[in-house]
Design a protein around this nucleic acid. Structure first.
Length: 137
DNA sequence: GCCAACGTTGGC
DNA sequence: GCCAACGTTGGC
C-alpha cells in the first residue's frame, strides 16, 4: 500500500466537508505530475488531507475509493481524478511548521515542490507524521 | 497583498 | 524544439 498527500484549500473543499460527505471525487487537478500520482494510486491507499493557504496543516486521513477516471470538469479531457473517502481526523493537526521543524521530513515533496497538489509520501514520512499527530505540542 | 517558484502556452 | 511571456499556486 502506498501513501500520498493531497492538498485542498479549505475555502474550496475542507476536511469538514469531506467528513460530512464521506466520499467525494477529487476534481480540479490540472497538473500532469499530480495527475500521474493519482494514476499510480490503488484502492485502499491512504492519503493525508492537507489544508493549503488557510491552516497549512494536515488535518485528516482519507483513503482512495475509486481509481483514476476522467474528470468531467476538465473541458480538455486531459485530466482525471480519483474518489477519496474520509477515514479519520488526526488527533492534532500537523502543521507545515511542524514538518519544517522535523529534520527527518525535510525531503518531503510537500516542501520540495510546494506547488504540487498531489504528492507521494514515503512509509517512513507517514509514520513520523502520524506520531507527531499523537504527540501533544 | 506581495512575490518567488514553476508549469504552460505560443511564436518563431 | 527552444525560450520568452504569462498565469497560477501557495507561503509569508
Amino acid at each position: 500500500m502506498a501513501f500520498w498527500l493531497m492538498k485542498s484549500e479549505p475555502n474550496v473543499w475542507s476536511w469538514d466537508q469531506q467528513v460530512k460527505k464521506g466520499t467525494e471525487s477529487w476534481t480540479g487537478v490540472r497538473n500532469y505530475q499530480a495527475a500521474n500520482n493519482m494514476k499510480a494510486m490503488a484502492i485502499g491507499d491512504q492519503a493525508f488531507f492537507y489544508h493549503s493557504n488557510i491552516g497549512k496543516e494536515i488535518v485528516g486521513i482519507v483513503k482512495i475509493s475509486k481509481l483514476y477516471y476522467p474528470d468531467p470538469t476538465d473541458e480538455t479531457g486531459k485530466f482525471g481524478m480519483v474518489d477519496v473517502t474520509a477515514v479519520n481526523p488526526l488527533k492534532r493537526p500537523v502543521t507545515l511548521a511542524d514538518i519544517k521543524n522535523t529534520p527527518a521530513l525535510k525531503n518531503m515533496a510537500l516542501l520540495k515542490q510546494s506547488r504540487l497538489s498531489v504528492s507521494a509520501v514515503t512509509p517512513a514520512e507517514w509514520d513520523i507524521i502520524l506520531s507527531l499527530s499523537q504527540t501533544p505540542r
